[in-house]
Amino acid sequence: MSYQTTTQFYSHRRQASWNRNQNTVAFVSSVKLGPVAHTALVALMITVLGLVYLTQATRATSYDYEAQKIDSQIADLSTKKSDLEVENARLTALETVQNSNVAKAMTAPAATDYAH
């Protein structure tokens, strides 16, 4: 049994290059824009970009105000927490505890048992 081997040879480089890019489509628009339209489009793009920038900047600033509000709330809560800590310290001070009704109702133990 014999086999026939087929080998393709290209005659030159240009033919090889063409084969690799054989799906390439060259599009040519049928609409033609003049210089005024070009300028208007560029101006429009710049305007859109400007609006995008302004939107972002405004949004960032609005976040700043939100952050400021939250900071104020934190500061306010922190002050309230400090006030409560002061009140707690006063209520648990020795003098206050000793003068409390609970302390006044206490009695001294008659005897103490020690675990040896």
Binding site: T79, S82, D83, E85, V86, A89, T92
Partner: peptide
């Protein structure tokens, strides 16, 4: 620990 000196606004 119990507070002896604290800050108040």
């Amino acid at each position: 620990p119990v507070p002896l000196v604290i800050n108040q606004t």
